[in-house]
Design a binder for these strands. Sequence first.
DNA 1: CTCCTCATGTACCAAGTGGTACATGTACCA
DNA 2: TGGTACATGTACCACTTGGTACATGAGGAG
Lengths: 211, 211
Amino acid sequence: MWYMGSQDPKQRLLDKVIDHLATHGLGDLSLRQLAAAIGTSHRMLNYHFGSRSGLLVEVVREVERRQQQRFNDFLRELESHARSTTQTPLFPEIAWRWWQHISDPHLWPHERLFFEIYGQALTGHPELAGFLTRVVESWLDPLIRFARAYGIPEPEARTEARLALAVTRGLLLDLLATGDRAGVDAAMKRQIAHYVTNHTNSAGVDVTKTT
Amino acid sequence: MWYMGSQDPKQRLLDKVIDHLATHGLGDLSLRQLAAAIGTSHRMLNYHFGSRSGLLVEVVREVERRQQQRFNDFLRELESHARSTTQTPLFPEIAWRWWQHISDPHLWPHERLFFEIYGQALTGHPELAGFLTRVVESWLDPLIRFARAYGIPEPEARTEARLALAVTRGLLLDLLATGDRAGVDAAMKRQIAHYVTNHTNSAGVDVTKTT
DNA sequence: CTCCTCATGTACCAAGTGGTACATGTACCA
DNA sequence: TGGTACATGTACCACTTGGTACATGAGGAG
């Protein structure tokens, strides 16, 4: 194909769609308005995605894919940092860095889109059912491995992972609504401190200094 | 008026609307479908609420009002229970009871609606801007009073309140998506245990037995 | 050159949308 | 009794929606 070298036109379209939805919300999911906003005709959206719900499904999959991508990027960044300093970072440091990573304002549009999809999926939207089955489980496994790697024993690891996920999402919801960076950061530090004093093998670090 | 004794027709309508939205989602907010589902004509919705967005605003306000109501009911229930046993319950007991209260399956439809509104509000829906400014703050004040009443000193009280709110909402999101009652309950117990061991003046109670 | 596949634009459709004008009914008030 | 305010139903409006039929084009394959 003549466009090989850039991208599948479908993927190019999907990228533009997600960029637009992240900044303008899912409410604009009228094929016509959407197409006009990203410089195509609604005919093209129907052609490449089959239907409105087909597009919605692919948008959701792409959002999930990007989240996973972000997590992998973070892990690689951690790894390279560990190589340069030769000492493996402590648990509270990593937790705090991860929080800084995903709470960065330039990710807010995507996080808003994530929670909007979450909300719509909760009310029975049938094409989003798969999203709900994955939205917790797909994060639990990597988090459990993480917890185990830092010495939290197995039966607790799953519970702590689930809790960490909930805290993160709850505080993100807060941050997106209030924009109160200082207040939300303080809460996250407090939570990390809770972990530390309850798992003595990684205690002894003042997380309030990790800023 | 002839209907005094039952209710304002507008309020009757609003109640039916919220019942329907809670079980069928905000996606159905087409005036016609909505009206048909609750046994009126879309004419009436426009008559009583002025417009589609007028209705949306009043729905949101009513959802907030009911949440507050639920919290007050819980406080009164606590109070009456305290009178009968003559001893004031410990912090972990109350926290656990509150969690049981709001995570009860019969409230799930309303919680789904809440998160769906939250998601829509995050993406700039202008008529929902007020919702975002209240969605955290309106819960912080009562929670702070609660924390202080249980001996948590002032500077930490606000942070702990914020954290507790985030944990609750994060775990509710998990519960609504997965339905994994046991897993989510375990996470909440774990969090309560974290609080207890970090605030020694209310420690010494095995929260795992409060089921 | 010829055919075929993929991508795109134009024009249309039936259905549904929010909103409103108008008429009807029903209870209260003077 | 007549009048007034509120509530409700019917019918309509202009507009937008998701989806599709049809035509056009551009590149690769023989």
